[in-house]
Amino acid sequence: DGAAVLPAPQNLSVRSVNMKHVLTWSPVIVPEEIIHYSVEYQGEYESLYMSHIWIPSSWCSPTQRPECDITEDITATVSYSLRVRATLGSLTSAWSTLKHRFNQNSTILTPPRMEITMDGFHLLIKLEDLGPHFEFFVSYWRKEPGAKEHVKVVRPGVLPVYLEMVEPGAAYCVKARTFVKAIGRHSAFSQPECVKVQGEALPL
């Protein structure tokens, strides 16, 4: 029975940053052979009500690399079981299952990258598109003592988003953080970025 000849993948773990989840494992080595891997998952519902049913991962059934982007498979804030097995021709290994079930609420949230630009006297912000889960809390103020800080909630999009009308000669600063409602958590703020508006300051 060829099933158990091939060793099962070991050291399964999930690396999750900004709601992008990647399952990794130690590669199974057979000299001069190409090993394929298959990944399957179960949400909490499946493990409670249909524990014999596992769902093939969207991108890694099969794959040759010892990792799998499972982002599209994790679609609810519940805990997921994940398992991997190796295949070489007709030989297949046993399934190896992630020790601790994975929940997306453990993802690491990093401050967003942003680009502050101006179009005429309009302050614009372009934020990296991190996917539909993300909202951005953008905070901006005029760079002068006692300036009021404004906050705007921005949803991801391809185009830059309009923030504020600015005055010639003044300087403005912007910082942003992400918020993921699905898990009720936000990232730290990015470092503030400041820009100076061309032209002379308006007479008071």
């Binding site: 949400g43 909490e44 519902y45 499946e46 409670l48 009500y49 049913i53 769902i55 969207s58 498979d73 679609t75 609810a76 804030t77 519940v78």
Partner: peptide, 14 residues
């Protein structure tokens, strides 16, 4: 249609 089924079932479960 297990993938769509899983998305709906797990989110209804939540």
């Amino acid at each position: 249609i297990l993938k769509s089924f899983s998305i709906l079932a797990n989110n209804f479960f939540v």
